[in-house]
Design a protein around this nucleic acid. Sequence first.
DNA 1: TCTTGACTTAAACATTGGTTTAAGTTGTAC
DNA 2: GTACAACTTAAACCAATGTTTAAGTCAAGA
Lengths: 165, 165
Amino acid sequence: MYSIGDIAKLMGISTSAIRFYDRQGLLPFVERDKAGRRRFKPNDLNFIEVIDCLKKSGVPVKDIAHFVGLCMKGDGTLQERYDYLDKEEEMLESRISQMQKQLDFLRYKKWYYKTSVEAGTETIHFAPGTKTVDPKIKEQYETELAHCTNLRDLIDLKQNSAHNQ
Amino acid sequence: MYSIGDIAKLMGISTSAIRFYDRQGLLPFVERDKAGRRRFKPNDLNFIEVIDCLKKSGVPVKDIAHFVGLCMKGDGTLQERYDYLDKEEEMLESRISQMQKQLDFLRYKKWYYKTSVEAGTETIHFAPGTKTVDPKIKEQYETELAHCTNLRDLIDLKQNSAHNQ
DNA sequence: TCTTGACTTAAACATTGGTTTAAGTTGTAC
DNA sequence: GTACAACTTAAACCAATGTTTAAGTCAAGA
């Protein structure tokens, strides 16, 4: 049996967050001792793990409460629970590939600033005679990316770290 | 030149969101026509792209405003801007690997429910004589995962989709 | 017995990220 | 010249996700 404090430490969250989740219907399975204190059973950790996973996946509390509600209803909702997780799997996959896209763009911008720092000015990327970025700069990055074997060589700036000594 | 409505369509967000970002200091580079309306220059799209990328990466508006502030200060902040993006790259990488972990767990749970649906009951995963999940079930999944060639065979439920016809 | 620490609740508060509303301005098309 | 659509602002409002506060309960140890 675990207290709310034990679970808080275990999950790396605050006790007030756990009470909040309880209010929102995420923890209907938690029992109480005769003083009214929450007592988590070992099996409750299986629920906690799923809740934690869904939270970290960016699923809203309300949606998680719906899933937990299905779990409490017994074997009649197994298919529904599978379908729910199937949908969340798809959402998570698409969120990950979205973030991978953003990461690719961020790396282009790192290259943009690495080369700017090396040149001492951003103007090396400007179209001749303007103060605006040359539209072809990104293509240039993509060409360099396609021909390079080590991404880090392309985008990581080797700091001449004399530090402040 | 683009109006606020053009940009809204382009980015797939509302005009009120754009005005909110402006209030928060994300768009100090936007000019106005003599009637006070925002006029986005083609070069502004480079800023918009970065802002959009950082937003989609989960960076708070305040932090993005700080980066945009650096951009407005000219070549003196190039190193700082690089360092900022470098930090965001790391954060994004760690967020992606976090989500990948959650995805792996979600797939275990899909397997758990796929096999439950096929058996008609969740009790197949319970420890003998109890109403609680057998602690060894996850190991069993991991063994099956290690030996399987196609993840989808392991976790996807083939619906006997007679549908409702 | 008394104190201490961990728990309980309800209700107020805080923050982030916007949306909505109300009132007004402008350029264009009829 | 008048209507319309698209813009402007400030301020109010909203939902999600907790945190904080105030007042109280309880078990264990000195």
